[in-house]
Design a protein around this nucleic acid. Structure first.
Length: 241
DNA sequence: ATGCAGATAATCT
DNA sequence: GATTATCTGCATG
């Protein structure tokens, strides 16, 4: 019935004060709210800290870009990549640790019209993107939620001013604020895990988590090294087969 | 259904 | 100069 929106309270900061690979599966079924749009998380990936996770942005230590990952837990780490996309994470563990959970996909629970508008390609309004695809993939999810570089570092924990998400919409959540609500976690049996998507190292670390059978989970894509240009760069490369 | 090419710029070597 | 925690469009089966 109507998506089954239940009354839901914010998660406390202590929720995020754990290793990212423990927080990640626990984030499934939770609801990230930013302004008018709410997304139920269906797929996430954990990233570890300096020296322990070769695939993490923090692997080689602190830089201007990854500074937020070294900040307090529960804040949004939003980064820009491939010259055009933003991706959103939630920071884990206490300050200075440098780990986070990448938000890879979800189902739009509120703000459908706003999400659709943000996801238009080339402003083409005649085209209708399937609802399940609106937040299916990390950059799509960030776009649907309206998260960009200006939201990097935004606190997603609502302390002291409890907001709620009910069948009637959001209440008590300040405009422009971000917050993660309890939502409805899946049965443990429904949680799957496997290798992370699109990375070139640590391919065997099974820190991608998703809800089994959910249509909004993104298709797995292996990392593919890009060749430079259309120019004839093949020097010693012989065509095979 | 799967696969590859191109887009496009910040970040790091 | 190379790489990138990606997406879309177009090709082929």
């Amino acid at each position: 019935m109507g998506g089954g929106l239940l009354t839901s309270a914010p998660l406390p900061r202590s929720f995020f004060d754990r290793p990212s690979h423990e927080v990640a599966p626990d984030l499934l079924g939770r609801v990230l709210v930013h302004g008018p749009v709410a997304v139920r998380l269906t797929e996430v990936e954990a990233y570890g800290g300096p020296g322990e996770d070769p695939a993490a942005h923090t692997y080689r230590g602190r830089t201007p870009r990854n500074a937020v990952m070294f900040g307090p837990p529960g804040h949004l780490y939003v980064y820009f990549t491939y010259g055009m996309h933003f991706c959103a994470n939630l920071v884990c563990l206490p300050e200075d640790h440098g780990s986070a959970v990448l938000l890879r996909a979800g189902e739009i629970l509120a703000g459908l019209d706003v999400a659709r508008e943000r996801r238009l390609v080339n402003g083409d309004r005649t085209r209708r993107i399937p609802e399940r695809d609106l937040a299916r993939g990390p950059a799509r999810l960030a776009t649907a939620l309206g998260l960009t570089r200006e939201h990097n570092g935004l606190d997603a924990v609502l302390d002291g001013a409890p907001g709620r998400f009910t069948e009637l919409g959001l209440t008590g959540v300040p405009a422009g604020a971000a917050v993660v609500l309890e939502g409805v976690p899946p049965e443990p049996d429904a949680i799957r895990s496997g290798p992370r998507t699109g990375i070139s190292t640590a391919k065997d670390t099974p820190w991608r988590f998703w809800i089994d059978g959910d249509p909004t989970v993104s298709p797995y894509r292996a990392h593919v090294p890009r060749r430079r240009s259309t120019a004839a760069t093949s020097v010693g490369e012989a065509p095979s087969s």
